[in-house]
Simulated scan of single mutants.
Amino acid sequence: MRTVRRLIWRDVLWSVMFVSVAFLSLFFFTDFLGELEDVSKRGYPIWAAVAGALLKQPVRFYELFPITVLIGTIYAMARLAESSEFTILRTGGLGPWRALSLLLSLGLIMAALTFVIGEYVAPYGDRQASALKARLRGANDLGGAGAWLKEHRPAMSAPAGAGSSPTGQGLAALGERNVSINVRGTDGAGKLSQIRIFEHDERGHLLRRIEAPTALVKPTADGSVWHLTAAVVSDWPADASMALQQRKVLELAWHTSLDERLVSAAVSPIDSMSTPELWRYTQHLNEQEQTAQRYELQFWKRVLYPFACIVMLALALPFAYLHARSGGISLKVFGGIMLGISFVLLNNVVGHLSLLRDWTPWLAALAPSLLYLALSMAAFVWLVRYR
């Protein structure tokens, strides 16, 4: 049994590696061409285009790995079937369920590899690519309306140094406060850019607005402090007959209970966030009564995506039981490519529909894998029992 496992695992792993290298080479070329546009328009050095394309490859590997597992396994199993090696293994005692268990045990290893790549390598590479662009451009625009954070400060229990004065003192005696923070971008040095802070009372009346071109976030024991440069503070008086008070502060220390990790997650692209960051940010959004479904869906996709490798291996096994006259290796590989593309399309369509229809995030993330697992088991049972 050990010899059979070594034979099958070796063929599958080499085939998956070959397909992965082929796909990554193709996507590296397309990413490099995309980076060359910035080289020509913005005058970046050519090494920046190469580095940017290379840093994207861990994300590409993570996204493509279940498909490359499917195509590589189909190729390996179809080649064993065409050369009659799989038939010899079957006559030697390799039953259908034992063959399935061999592939599923290999699938667990591939799922663990997918988890490590998606949890550590891919987010790190994506963050480094964003930081490289920010250093070259001078800023990294978050797009759209930027990133929004919210903070609720209860009456008489606000953190010290988070108040109404320009430096953030004296809020505890002023009642509840709801703070909305908008960040439009980041730069290569880790600073936030184009910050707007809106402070409302419990009735929703605007009390203060703070605008600053840059801010540096420093962690504290009870949250963080934002060092705003060239801040413009606008105070709305309680009496409508009084004039708006506006002042400029060269260096403003603004205290908040939002910790540095939460701020970093909010200004990061959703694809570059790790699973713990997605979980923390989702909890923060729920606590602040903000829409968190998009981040919940991404969290469950990140948790369940490694198991897609197991589903793809189970889906590839029935191809070993097809006779050689049922089609050559090229036809079976083409079928595997179509199955992989359909899985990606279904995964994306279900994700978008879940956001539109407000479906349960974990069920929407799990549905495509369950459907293809059921399809693979049905094909496997039909081929084994009736063919």
Rank of each mutant, 00 (worst) to 15 (best):
P318G: 05
H352G: 12
H323S: 14
S354I: 06
I329R: 01
V333K: 00
L366Q: 01
L345F: 14
F334H: 08
P368K: 01
R325K: 14
L346C: 08
R325L: 12
S326E: 14
A364G: 06
S342D: 03
L363D: 07
N347Y: 11
F343H: 04
V350D: 07
G351C: 05
L366S: 02
A374S: 14
G340K: 00
I341V: 15
S354N: 09
Y372C: 06
A364R: 04
L370Y: 04
Y321L: 01
Y321W: 11
L322W: 07
A365E: 04
L322D: 06
V349R: 01
L366N: 01
A324Q: 14
S354F: 09
S354A: 15
L356V: 07
D358A: 13
V350S: 04
L322N: 03
Y372E: 06
V350N: 05
Y321P: 00
L366V: 07
L366P: 00
Y372K: 04
V344S: 11
A364N: 08
L356F: 05
A365H: 03
G327N: 09
N347F: 10
N347I: 03
S342P: 09
A364F: 10
G336F: 03
A364L: 10
A365Y: 03
V349I: 15
M338F: 10
N348D: 14
N348R: 12
D358L: 12
G336K: 00
L331W: 14
P361Y: 10
W359Y: 10
L356C: 03
L339H: 01
L355Q: 15
G340P: 09
R357E: 13
G351T: 03
N347A: 04
S326K: 04
L345Q: 09
L373E: 07
A365P: 02
P368V: 08
I341L: 15
P368G: 01
F334V: 03
R325Y: 08
S330T: 10
L346V: 08
G335T: 06
L373D: 05
L366W: 02
F319M: 10
A324W: 09
P368M: 02
G328D: 13
V344L: 14
P368Q: 01
G335N: 05
M338N: 05
L371N: 08
L355C: 08
H323L: 12
M338K: 02
F319D: 01
I337A: 05
G327H: 11
P318C: 10
G351A: 11
S342L: 12
H323W: 10
I329G: 00
V350K: 03
Y321E: 00
A364C: 11
W362K: 03
V349D: 02
Y321C: 00
G340D: 01
S342M: 12
H323R: 15
A324R: 15
P361Q: 07
G351V: 03
K332E: 08
L370A: 07
S342K: 09
G335V: 06
F343K: 02
L339V: 13
